[in-house]
Design a protein around this nucleic acid. Sequence first.
RNA 1: GCCGCCGUAGCUCAGUGGUAGAGCGCACCCUUGGUAAGGGUGAGGUCAGGAGUUCAAUCCUCCUCGGUGGCACCA
Length: 635
Amino acid sequence: MSTFLINKEKTPLNTKELRHFIPKDMCGSVVAALVNGKQLDLSYNPKENDSVEWIHVNSCEGEEIIRHDSAHLLAQALKDIWQDDISIAIGPTIENGFYYDLLAKNPISEDDLENIEKRMHEIVSANIPIVRHVWSRDKALDFFRKQNEEFKVQIIQDIPEGESLSVYQQGNFFDLCRGPHAPSTSFVGDGFKLLRIAGAYWRGDSNNVMLQRIYGTAWSSKKRLNEHLKIIEEAKTRDHRLLGERAQLFFTSGVSKGSVFWMPDGWKVWMRMEEYIREKLNQNSYHEIRTPLFFEKSLWEKSGHQEKFSDSMYFLEQHDHEPPSSLKPMNCPAHIELFKKYPKTYKDLPLRFAEFGCCSRYEPSGALFGIMRLRNFTQDDAHIFCTEDQVQQEAESFCSLLFEVYKHFGFTNIQVCLSTKPTNALGNHALWERAEESLRTALNNMGIPFTVNEGEGAFYGPKLEFILQDALKRKWQCGTLQLDYILPQRLNATYTDESDKKTHPVLMHRAILGSMERFLAILIEDTKGILPMWLAPWQVAILTITQHADSFAQECIELLEQNGIRVHQDLRNKQIGFKVRAAIDKRIPFIISIGKREAESKTVSLKILGEQKNITLSLQETLKLLLNACSNETI
RNA sequence: GCCGCCGUAGCUCAGUGGUAGAGCGCACCCUUGGUAAGGGUGAGGUCAGGAGUUCAAUCCUCCUCGGUGGCACCA
């Protein structure tokens, strides 16, 4: 891509628009231009010495413009088909695509997408010019009122009076838009596809009317589109719900919505995760504890949860005349109770209580998702009680531990986010400043890049979020570190400081994995179900090809098990192909087959999951290979 | 919670206004097998639940429940 300066002397007299400056061989591929660093339409009238860079359709910026064009195309198609029965709202670009929100008299269904798409292709073929108009606010208001486009009217009404705005026209379709757009509809080509239809609130507010949102994906060519569709298809095969059932790890059921049933192999994985975290807790001076599952309402009243969180809490039906209780939605009040049990002094701090705490929250039914968003889930939770001076050091230690753990699970792409003081914050401003600063400093000292979510902190303090992505690139908060200056006060937790004064400790809520269930789900999607060797329920499968090989197989199983290898044996009287398939479904990383040949020569035939060819090894070679694989913590 | 879609055998799914089918799994038998399902026989279903329309509903309508794609929510 190259920059040039406009020189009007060198161009034909009648050229007014930027597009006349496009070199002939580029005409079909330039969709817009970067003029003095600003994206503009090709209809722009350039000034002498304007610095211009062409935006090609196959560049990132060009594809972005195509996506926006596609959104308009979609809206035009909708209006063509349903006319006044549809009013359109907004149609922005998103990663890899676009959407358009609309309100239809009769709801549009997924069956309609094919038809809409067909109309879009027709509009592309018709090569309709896309024309930019600059209108006054009043003219635009008047126009869209006459068109009965209520949502557009609302958008314009939010624009300050007296300002002008741009409207794009393609045929008889007009849309309010900042631009830029390609010069005509044919530039969109055939690299787009409508994907699905969903609900979305007008302006993202659940108090507003619910619109329908049509999602699409758009690319500079059909080839790029197909590549993208293939990636989506591949990602879908990684779905933890699918793999979890196929490998018989867990399932969910309507008899306990939002809860998990763990099957024997899945529970093996769970216990190993727990054991690993427990080991890390021990190495880092945490004390593991166990607290009750439900507490009397009075505790939640004192902690403030009753007031702020009761919509999400489960209340227990009462027997006799006992005061009402609630299942715990979080562990913090319980940990504070433990802290308060015996008097504490500054010498006890920092004090770190950890618990694999099972929490229950009434999540909206539409929020439930596989085992990533549950109503019953377990946090690898801990609360650190410390002085304000210790906060930064504790934050650094926590980050260091978190990154060590994530690396061990094979995660390197970790998004870190600092959420700062919200409008409903409690506590004085100076305290917040210091708290945010200590988290910021901790991250900087650790060399951890992060983004800031202004005003997204909890009411009691700022927080760090550690975010991972699932197979479809959806983001999930996993680890978290939250500073809390309020709860120790509310529940009156104190320690005696150096000057013999009762002081409230700072409370740090922190979780590394976040939710055990969610973290494992993401791990399954990340690894396609082939869990790291140290975590896999079975490290090797031993299958017999004929029953005559049973005794040698037993010999192999014993040897491997004696060496601490987790062996899944399948000596059933079945075809070998069938048994291999079953082992693959279980995602067992090493698959050993033993038949007559192997039994006679005292060897095994080894298949490494994902590889086509088998290798033949002696028993000792096999043992060595497996022990090596098992000891490599990151495989 | 809201909008769209879906719910048929253990699983994946066909199907029709006249009370049901396939493949795989399962059980049994045969085959002693050579790497993503060898052959045969058989069991297994209130077609998610309820109500309505109809001579007749798995199919059409409504409600409920569950799942799913999003939105909102995730203190």
